[in-house]
């Protein structure tokens, strides 16, 4: 056998560390930077927890979208309806089982949340599969048509929500044990926000495990980078894409449930409203990058909460500013995915 590695040109090349820590440091750096401006540590903790909770929810909604884009170069402007649908799906559970939410039992309360999440994810996954087949599949390759036709899907699905559940906002109640706050001396942390952070972390950890430790995950990561080569290795990327689309829809549904209990009001347009933040997060994170999506979500949500406290009128503008700054720094987003 020939030993190719013996030549000088080869051994001289040693691997460089490629892990990009800088964007990861942004989140703690931002939180620390905000502390002196806010002054009061207990307000700071409250705001930080609120920001993290919101960031986790945005991450749930955005992660599927960014993967779908990375894999198939498809941009789904109708992604927001899965958020709304997930939110409304809670009504299916809350209708007959409202008593579980009122019961003074953590077990029953959590079971109710679990059921809401399950039903919402099942519904959004099913609608996602239909959406992919009917709306998205015929318009591969043309971004213009994709944007238009997915907007059309958004209109129709939002209207269908109106037809089924009515057009007026619907209030929903948080299960009893998730109401109120944990109080540690001066520091007040709302229970539901802590719950949202936990759910977000669990999903993020699950996704990281899936992407890094399983064959399907490897395929997704490889497919984001070069779908053609994945096909040339003998994998049917269409099937993979449909699964990711459906999973992304289900995650948006989960995000919708979390968002619904956070706002405690349902409107058909709630998904599209939050999509503005989702798009900003995706642009900041780098299209196709789950890690970037996570960092971007936390960044955007923390900035929104800090600025909302310090200068309420600038809250949404602040996100545009964050986006502009990130793009000036890294035009491809925080974690650009290498691509063909």
């Amino acid at each position: 056998m020939t030993d190719i590695a013996t030549n000088a040109a080869d051994t001289a090349e040693l691997p460089r560390a490629r892990t990009d820590w800088l964007p990861l440091l942004l989140v703690p750096a931002l939180a620390l930077l905000a502390l002196p401006f806010i002054g009061n540590p207990s307000s700071w903790v409250t705001l930080t927890v609120a920001g993290l909770a919101m960031g986790m929810m945005i991450f749930l909604m955005a992660s599927g979208l960014t993967l779908v884009f990375g894999l198939m170069d498809i941009i789904n402007f109708g992604h927001g309806v899965f958020i709304s649908l997930g939110a409304y799906a809670t009504l299916i559970v809350l209708g007959p089982l409202a008593a579980w939410g009122q019961a003074d039992s953590l077990g029953l309360n959590l079971a109710l949340m679990g059921l809401c999440i399950l039903v919402a994810m099942a519904l959004t996954a099913a609608v996602g599969a239909v959406f992919e087949r009917v709306i998205v599949r015929p318009v591969y390759g043309s971004h213009l048509k994709q944007i238009l036709v997915t907007m059309g899907g958004l209109i129709v699905t939002e209207q269908a929500i109106h037809a089924i559940w009515g057009a007026s906002p619907i209030p929903i109640a948080l299960p009893a044990s998730l109401r109120g706050a944990y109080v540690l001396g001066d520091i007040v942390m709302e229970r539901y926000r802590v719950f949202a952070v936990v759910i977000g972390l669990v999903v993020f950890a699950g996704m990281e495990l899936l992407l890094n430790r399983t064959r399907i995950g490897l395929l997704i990561r490889a497919g984001v980078e070069n779908p053609e080569m994945v096909e040339a290795l003998g994998y049917r990327i269409r099937r993979l894409f449909v699964s990711v689309f459906v999973a992304g829809s289900a995650l948006a549904g989960l995000g919708g449930v979390m968002w619904a209990f956070y706002r405690q009001t349902l409107t058909a347009g709630m998904g599209m409203e939050v999509m503005v933040l989702v798009f900003i997060v995706i642009i900041i994170g780098g299209l196709g990058s789950v890690g970037g999506c996570f960092v971007g979500s936390l960044l955007v949500a923390l900035v929104a909460n800090y600025v909302g406290f310090l200068a309420p009128k600038l809250a949404l503008i602040s996100n545009i500013l964050v986006m502009a700054l990130v793009l000036v720094w890294r035009p491809q987003g925080l974690f650009p995915v290498a691509r063909r």
């Binding site: 409203e273 009128k313 000036v328």
Partner: peptide, 24 residues
């Protein structure tokens, strides 16, 4: 602003800017 980024971002950026304008 959208000069620096991919064409697909343009739509998203305009959406964000427009919603910010509405809030403002």
């Amino acid at each position: 602003l959208s000069l620096r980024v991919r064409a697909i971002f343009f739509s998203m950026i305009t959406l964000a800017v427009a919603s910010a304008a509405a809030v403002l």
